[in-house]
């Protein structure tokens, strides 16, 4: 407990590929950022993150918690969240805070990509990939490992290209076939990787940017923003400089933390945060298929020391409603109900 600062807000972003935890101060400045690989174990990863934060911070320093990302509901139950928000809002809030005046946010994460248009700090339009995940972080990861290049160096290679080749980027499977073909034709690796970046950017703008006016300043965030080849390809396609904020990897978590500070202030300073000790509790999640009707809903149940904390996933509400009401955190209940028709 060497970092003695009061009034911090915790943001947790549990995504498909990475789980990020950040602490921001009252001014919205990032004090601590953790970037962990989710590796298909969202629950364990969140707990691991909390444990490592507990080494330097105490419960009293945390004024509020927010969660976001695809596993936001799960994370919220574990930490006792004050606010649970979707990734789009979280990213937009973070970018408007850290990069004042931002007009366009490009975000590419593990399995989704987003384009968010902002004016005067307010989101005016957004789009998120729906039917296709070509060009997201997972695909780049896969290609880097196929070519046996560390993902961190992938972008550096792209920048060295002299003549980027044209890669078919509409579908990630065909993009891979095309890359193999281009390798077999004898193109250099640099040119192929650079061509891939351009193809992915083309795909991004075709999928998400149709009919949208992209104004600068432009911010590029998410895990893929670390790839300098992708940045360059965006700059080339858009004709504007693209800024990558320092904390680009954890912007979702930053947004969740900022939203938590707003929510706690609105509620008069009371937080639901359960404390870092939750990391020591034996948490367990299980799922089962309810066979009472042909909908066969998958019910997810979260337990803390044999006690059921939360359930969700049922369409009829039978399992959710079967819980004693005192286990329900109001913020979480609202979110669960929103997700259960």
């Amino acid at each position: 407990m060497d970092k003695a600062q009061e009034g911090l807000y915790l943001g947790v972003d549990v995504g498909s590929v990475s789980t990020n935890l950040v602490l921001i101060d009252g001014e919205g400045q990032v004090q601590e950022a953790l970037y962990l690989r989710t590796q298909g174990r969202p629950l364990e990863t969140v707990l691991r993150g909390l444990q490592s934060l507990a080494r330097s911070y105490s419960n009293e320093q945390i004024n509020g918690v927010g969660t976001t990302g695809s596993a936001r509901s799960l994370a919220a139950v574990v930490v006792g969240a004050d606010v649970i928000k979707n990734e789009i809002t979280a990213h937009a809030v973070a970018a408007s805070n850290l990069v004042p005046g931002v007009r366009t946010i490009l975000e590419i994460g593990g399995q989704d990509s987003k384009l968010i248009l902002v004016k005067d700090g307010i989101v005016t339009d957004f789009s998120m990939n729906t039917v296709c995940a070509a060009g997201t972080g997972s695909f780049l990861d896969q290609q880097a490992s196929r070519l046996q290049i560390p993902i961190e160096e992938f972008g550096q290679l792209a920048v060295k290209a002299s003549h980027p080749v044209r890669i078919a980027g509409r579908c990630s499977v065909f993009a891979e076939s095309d890359m193999i073909h281009k390798q077999q034709m004898g193109h250099s690796l640099e040119d192929i990787i650079s061509g891939l970046c351009e193809a992915l950017v083309r795909n991004f703008l075709n999928n998400l940017g149709k009919g949208k006016k992209i104004d600068s300043p432009i911010v590029f965030q998410g895990g893929v923003a670390a790839n300098i080849g992708m940045c360059q390809a965006f700059e080339k396609a858009l004709g504007h400089p693209v800024e990558v904020p320092q904390h680009h990897k954890v912007m979702g978590a930053v947004g969740a933390a900022i939203l938590a500070s707003e929510a706690v202030a609105q509620r008069g300073g009371v937080s639901n945060f359960k404390g870092f000790t939750v990391a020591e509790q034996p948490f367990g999640a299980r799922s089962f298929e309810c066979a009472d009707c042909p909908n066969l809903c998958e019910i997810i149940e979260l337990q803390e020391a044999e006690r059921v904390l939360s359930r969700w996933g049922d369409r009829c509400g039978k399992w959710t409603n079967a819980l004693p009401s005192e286990v329900n955190n109001p913020a979480i209940t609202a979110e669960m109900e929103a997700t259960t028709p």
């Binding site: 809002t89 989101v123 339009d125 998120m128 929103a338 997700t339």
Partner: peptide
């Protein structure tokens, strides 16, 4: 359904 709710929520938030 999760993807749908994310988009609806973001739209309402906006």
């Amino acid at each position: 359904e999760a993807g749908l709710i994310t988009r609806l929520e973001a739209f309402i938030d906006m």
